[in-house]
Design a protein around this nucleic acid. Structure first.
Lengths: 349, 349
DNA sequence: CCCTTTCGTCGAAGCGCTTCGACAGCTGTA
DNA sequence: TACAGCTGTCGAAGCGCTTCGACGAAAGGG
């Protein structure tokens, strides 16, 4: 491996000069800079990451913690991960991939070892075990002294208590409200919500509950009836859930679907039962754009802006690492796109 | 941050002793070991990753290069990535997430900087630009001297020339043959293949072409007719493709689907046209288990063993890093599971 | 009983980089 | 002319760890 010293020798300057050329932290004459750059190119020099991290106590690595489970939103997760990696590179960072598996220990390990300069957490639960370790500022009596990692971090998702934390997320509350509002305006009075898998609610994943909140308060405001049912993905689960819903509320004409793997099954089932979309029933989905346009009926939907979330998360984290930015909660405003799956409620029989 | 030296002092031993306790590279008396371990726990010590990497020239990091595009097999990619991360941790490695974006430069950068000890590449093309940098052994005249990264690497996927490379993949050739064979045995004489998006073939992704090979030779052997059509995912594209297929070969009774996002649209279209599955037409898919069982008809399928591929890749890489293992091509044998979507061909009208 | 091994521990030398303080040579100002 | 203030460069100290050789002590062999 080529070292800094070799580059320096080749260029006829000292090692520190080469270092300053690389970092730009001191002014260098144009002449010297060019000679050094030429040597770097010629020798194919790459700075050694470990040495750099040791000397500067900055690793230029961001840790990204993705959920281990794949029971929800896999494409969204993937898209976020890729956006994070891409954006991070653009800012000179690499991304370390952690799975939720290790839980809080991963936070301790990464923070303690200086492996990463900061972290981004996905799939945050309302009372997440990892949060006490991340909370900046003062959490009086909250953490045992010496245990605080105080790792710069950004969450994708919203916990119950966001004090001392930076979070980025779609405003799922507004999303829920928006969906109901859309259907209510079209005259639907009985709306069913196909939610995420029961397990998602059980572990108190913030976005699911917040969406529900929004749906409920939207319904209250618009004076429509709302029936919420969790649903595993897949055809069979959807069939069962739909049957129950129509049994309980035969007059249901509006559906809000949050579970992306229930979308296509729902459409197939409705078709099979002779209920036309959007003539007889309307469907609004909360899902990535791609799912909405690729479905068998182009779906009216609120997009989940995965890329944007990943990008914002990195940008806020980098700002924090540069000391440019404090704690903050960024909620992305939802946008509802009307497509072919929603229309006026049928006139009452 | 707590350092080795502080632990040593706290335990009343020298720094090197602590280091040997940690690495186990020299024998340590039980007594000393326990005292040191106790101090480590008490002080909450985590070795500094940079220092460790610098001193040992091992980073204990594996780089994983995932495709930037998301035009195919997203859940498979995700599953592989998670399996890689999990398996790597079990072997004491962390995973660095790289996107294909940087191309060969990423290989140079990571290898040159010692950021990672080895790498795993996904989405390998037949003539992949990154390969010359990875090829071990002698590639006479192949690479400019000094350019060879000679980075220990494992590919997930098969390039045209595997010499000097370690690869892990499903045996897609056998997979194709297996699908045709299954349908042929059931009496189907006209088989259509719904392939990946055209772009996938254009960039010569190995698995797509190898599957096709297998399908064709299987068809030749079984004496059945085969019609292959690439297909973007989604309902509209599938509708168009299906219409063309049935126009050209109205007698088609067997379908092999490789594009996972064409599966559900195909089933919906067939249903809509009054063709019953499996009574009138049979469908065999190449897809993850989960997709097969969640579809509206439980699909006869060859599973894509994503987890296994990720795990094997890591295990081979780790073996290589330990000097325990040479170059090798591991092809996982395909397994066809019969479910509800395939049955005997209808008797000829 | 002495000499050789083996065991357990230590000190010191780096690994390749960043960064601080020093300083030589200039420019510009008084 | 002299001195303050830049600018551009260098040397050296250290970041926290691994690892090599050394060495005293205990154990085994002749």
């Amino acid at each position: 491996m080529v070292t800094l010293a070799e580059v320096a020798q080749h260029a006829g300057v000292s090692a520190s000069t080469v270092s300053y050329v690389l970092s730009g932290k001191r002014s260098i004459s144009t002449n010297t800079r060019q000679r050094v750059e030429e040597s770097i190119r010629e020798l194919g020099y790459h700075p050694n990451a470990g040495a750099r991290a040791l000397a500067s106590s900055r690793s230029n690595i961001i840790a990204l913690m993705v959920p281990l489970r794949t029971d929800m939103y896999v494409p969204v997760m993937m898209e976020i991960a890729i956006a994070v990696a891409t954006t991070a590179r653009a800012h000179g960072y690499d991304v370390l991939l952690l799975t939720g598996e290790e839980g809080p220990d991963a936070v301790r390990r990464v923070a303690g070892s200086g492996l990463a300069d900061g972290m981004i957490l996905m799939d945050v639960e309302l009372e997440d075990e990892r949060l006490p370790l991340l909370r900046g500022g003062d959490t009086p009596g909250g953490t045992r002294p010496g245990v605080r990692a105080d790792q710069p971090a950004v969450l994708i998702g919203l916990p119950a208590d966001t004090s001392g934390l930076t979070c980025v997320d779609l405003d799922f509350r507004a999303t829920g409200a928006l969906c109901v509002e859309h259907l209510a305006k079209l005259g639907h009075r009985d709306i069913a919500v196909i939610g995420e898998a029961p397990a998602v609610y059980e572990r108190h994943t913030g976005f699911a509950e917040r969406t529900l909140d929004g749906l409920r308060s939207g319904a209250r405001e618009a004076g429509v009836r709302l029936l919420h049912r969790p649903c595993e993905g897949g055809y069979d689960a959807m069939a069962l859930t739909l049957a129950r819903i129509l049994d309980e509320r035969p007059g249901t004409t509006g559906f809000v679907v949050q579970n992306e793997s229930a979308v296509e099954p729902l459409l197939a089932l409705l078709r099979q039962q002779g209920r036309a979309v959007p003539e007889d029933v309307s469907v609004v989905a909360v899902c990535p754009e791609q799912v909405a346009v690729q479905a068998s009926v182009r779906l009216t939907s609120v997009a989940i802006p995965a890329q944007e979330m990943g990008r914002y998360a990195v940008e806020h984290l980098v700002a924090k690492l540069d000391g440019r930015d404090g704690d903050e909660v960024v909620l992305i405003a939802p946008e509802l796109t009307v497509r072919a799956s929603s229309g006026p409620a049928p006139s009452r029989a």
